[in-house]
Nucleic acid binder design. Structure first.
Lengths: 194, 194
DNA sequence: TCCGTTGTATTCCTAACAGGAATAGTAGTC
DNA sequence: GACTACTATTCCTGTTAGGAATACAACGGA
């Protein structure tokens, strides 16, 4: 996707795609990471609110960030570690402060298929919704585990305060989805029983 | 994105990306549409649960569907109308019945920026959340309008039954988001006031 | 009547993005 | 000492987003 055109601006702050800033943000927690570790951290945290970028994309992203000097590297044998630079901090801060809120983009395959439910049997839709509820539970459990790992450093002012806010948001979201999916399943069953 | 590889299968039913099936689904409501109208219908309905495909993509999609004979055309002057074929109906049905539920992909710029809230001021985050709540209200209103337009044909068995189920799902989702955003805003304010 | 605007309809281009395969070294284990 | 799992990176292909460009209606006003 192309949220922002990655075109050089007249001023010295080029607008990067949101994924660039997402990765840059993952580097603001105080450590140096390899591309591989960045991918892992993205899978751990980012994937619940953003798409976890593909490996290939992580590497092309950090290459660009390096070119723009928003990150710096420490090479050690055949592994390269990335850390955010002052310019990177500044660019991130500016992006945070000047970007309009922006509406979530959702790709919901279950809702999509429900929309054209008339092309198949009700029982098929019921199965789909049940599967979805099960997947939701699994994902909720994953996120709950992540959330639990933040406990102890999740108070205001502590390093994981904001991640904990977002994780709680995600847990509420999953619970909401579960409720709506169940409600819809109920409506389907009710209609089928008549 | 590449949900499904668009590779020809050994059997005669190639797996298409989900967006192809989404457009095919929009053609199952009984009418013939131009690419332009398909885009409009997608903006009207699809955009709440899926991304409304770009114009360019609508046209490349229908071109492929035509090549695969899943749609047929009626050319009239310089406008081309597309309708779903029997083969298209069958392909859609098969996709509906054989695809695993599939988990939603979410790109939530507000959550993303909240995750790295520590790089900016709390007031900035509060503003962002307030903007988001306002945008949610606007989107909810749009969807409510769409939902209202289905009334009268939204009972089980009627043409807009499934669209109405999905629209109700979406309304609940927006309400849930509004509640969580407000809750998070409250937590932020509480922490800032201490 | 001419002109500008709005809406319809389509095409083209570029860059972002997903997903996986390929490679290759390294560390533990049976 | 082979087998497996994990770390680390690169490459390729096709999908997707977003916008610009084109062009031809139709409509309303000066």
């Amino acid at each position: 996707m192309r949220q922002d055109p990655a075109v050089a601006e007249p001023d010295d702050s080029p607008r990067l795609p949101a994924t660039s800033y997402a990765l840059l943000g993952l580097l603001t927690f105080g450590d140096e990471l390899t591309g591989y570790e960045l991918k892992q951290r993205a899978d751990m945290t980012l994937r619940f609110y953003w798409t976890a970028p593909a490996m290939s994309q992580v590497y092309t992203e950090v290459a660009r960030l390096l070119r723009l000097e928003l990150v710096a590297t420490t090479v050690e044998g055949r592994t390269t570690r990335y850390r955010i630079t002052d310019a990177g901090q500044q660019a991130l801060r500016e992006w945070m402060d000047t970007t309009p809120a922006g509406f979530p983009v959702l790709k919901h395959p279950v809702a999509l298929r429900l929309l054209m439910g008339h092309v198949t049997e009700v029982s098929q839709l019921q199965t789909m919704l049940e599967e979805y509820v099960a997947e939701l539970a699994a994902n909720r459990a994953d996120l709950a585990e992540v959330r639990a790992s933040l406990v102890g450093a999740d108070a205001p002012g502590q390093p994981f305060y904001y991640p904990s806010l977002v994780a709680d948001w995600g847990l509420d979201y999953f619970d909401g989805e579960r409720d709506v999916a169940r409600k819809t399943l109920g409506r389907l069953t009710e209609a089928a029983d008549q």
